[in-house]
Each structure stands twice: as C-alpha cells, then as structure tokens.
Amino acid sequence: MADDPLDNLDRRILHLLQIDARGASDTDIADETDVTGTTIHNRIEQLEAEGVILGYNPEINYEEAGYPMRVLFICSTDLSQRSKMAREALEVSGVVNVREMLSGEENLHVEVVAEATSDVKESTEQLDALGLRIVSSNILAEEHIQPWNHFHQELAGEDAETPSEIGSDDE
C-alpha cells in the first residue's frame, strides 16, 4: 500500500481490529464507521491481501498457561546476519518473539517463555549454538499492551483513555 496510502476508513478499521479483532464483526465495525458490513469485509480482505494486516494473534498470559518464566535476551550478531539469525532464533525452544534492532551492538531482542529455569538454560544454549552472543538477560515481570490509537484518533472519535469496547458484551 506504499503507492496507495491508507484512507480514513482503513485506519478506523485497523484501530477497531486492534481493540478486539476476535469480537468485532463486520457489522459491528460497520456500525462504528457508517458504512456497510460488505464494505468492511472487502476492506479487511484488501488489507490482508496487501500485507497491512499480517494476522490475528491472541494475547496469552503465559503464567496462567503454566509458563511462569519470561526472559528477554538482548543479543548481538553481525548486522549482515541479523535477519537470518532472527529467523533461526524463532526455531529455538521457548522463543515467542524476536525483534531486530536497526543498528547497534544489541541488535536482536529474543523473548523466551519457559516452565522452569532448566528450560531457560536450554534456550540459552540453543541461542549460543546459533552463534548469537547474549549481552544480557532480564526476567520480565509484566507487559502492558494497548492498541495503537494513532490511526487518526480524531476521525475515530476515540478518547485515548477509553477506547470503544466493540464485541465485548460477554466480558
């Protein structure tokens, strides 16, 4: 969509999907945007086809799922190998997220979830075997996530403090 930037409706759809992608039906979004459900459906398909929407992933409380340890490894690799190493790191046991940093020494951030310290040790050994140099590691206590509300917030009619609760009748 680089040649054809997002219009206001696309931005509004993206914002509403970030709030509740699972619970927001085409009809719910249509009601919020004053267009038809068919238009919403078509726009979402277009956003998916063009790679703007990459997928729909649940937010998981790993501790409640039996994996109380979350560790963020700050790693270093050659910049020319960064993307390759990121893909390989995703194959390591327990890795749930890898972020490539644009530059610098600490250019891969690898998040691992584990049931016990022995699992973290195994992940550490696998990262090391890939050739990643672990600069530091931090045990994550909490993570706070919110929808990015800058898809033309004024057009969305949203108050940054209280996003709309589309599809959340059963919460």
Score class of each variant (00 low, 15 high):
residue 94 G to L: 03
residue 31 D to W: 05
residue 150 H to S: 10
residue 73 F to S: 01
residue 126 Q to H: 06
residue 100 E to D: 14
residue 145 I to T: 07
residue 171 E to Q: 14
residue 124 T to G: 06
residue 121 K to W: 10
residue 54 L to D: 12
residue 4 D to F: 04
residue 146 Q to R: 11
residue 141 A to S: 13
residue 13 I to W: 06
residue 100 E to V: 14
residue 6 L to K: 00
residue 18 Q to C: 05
residue 118 S to D: 04
residue 118 S to M: 00
residue 81 Q to N: 14
residue 50 E to F: 01
residue 60 I to H: 04
residue 68 P to K: 11
residue 36 T to R: 07
residue 57 N to M: 06
residue 93 S to M: 08
residue 102 L to K: 12
residue 123 S to A: 13
residue 71 V to G: 06
residue 2 A to P: 00
residue 166 I to W: 05
residue 142 E to K: 15
residue 4 D to Q: 06
residue 58 P to M: 00
residue 67 Y to W: 08
residue 148 W to I: 05
residue 89 A to G: 11
residue 92 V to G: 11
residue 107 N to L: 08
residue 159 D to K: 12
residue 26 D to F: 13
residue 4 D to L: 03
residue 86 A to P: 10
residue 96 V to E: 01
residue 115 E to R: 04
residue 68 P to C: 10
residue 167 G to N: 06
residue 94 G to P: 08
residue 127 L to Q: 07
residue 69 M to S: 08
residue 15 H to P: 01
residue 124 T to F: 14
residue 26 D to I: 04
residue 85 M to R: 08
residue 20 D to W: 05
residue 21 A to P: 07
residue 113 V to K: 01
residue 124 T to A: 13
residue 11 R to N: 08
residue 85 M to H: 03
residue 43 R to C: 12
residue 153 Q to P: 02
residue 78 D to H: 15
residue 152 H to N: 11
residue 17 L to V: 05
residue 98 V to H: 02
residue 86 A to I: 09
residue 107 N to P: 01
residue 74 I to D: 02
residue 68 P to N: 09
residue 136 S to T: 10
residue 107 N to A: 06
residue 155 L to H: 12
residue 75 C to Q: 08
residue 65 A to K: 15
residue 82 R to Q: 13
residue 123 S to N: 03
residue 82 R to I: 12
residue 150 H to L: 13
residue 27 T to S: 13
residue 54 L to M: 10
residue 84 K to E: 13
residue 75 C to W: 10
residue 145 I to M: 13
residue 147 P to T: 09
residue 122 E to D: 14
residue 80 S to E: 11
residue 94 G to H: 09
residue 77 T to K: 04
residue 56 Y to M: 01
residue 42 N to C: 08
residue 126 Q to I: 02
residue 30 A to S: 14
residue 50 E to G: 01
residue 134 I to F: 01
residue 7 D to Y: 09
residue 13 I to M: 08
residue 114 A to Y: 10
residue 26 D to Y: 14
residue 4 D to M: 04
residue 127 L to V: 03
residue 54 L to K: 12
residue 68 P to T: 10
residue 60 I to Y: 00
residue 79 L to V: 09
residue 147 P to N: 09
residue 48 E to Y: 05
residue 100 E to G: 11
residue 115 E to C: 01
residue 35 V to R: 12
residue 48 E to G: 07
residue 72 L to D: 11
residue 11 R to K: 15
residue 120 V to E: 03
residue 122 E to K: 14
residue 41 H to K: 07
residue 70 R to T: 15
residue 86 A to E: 08
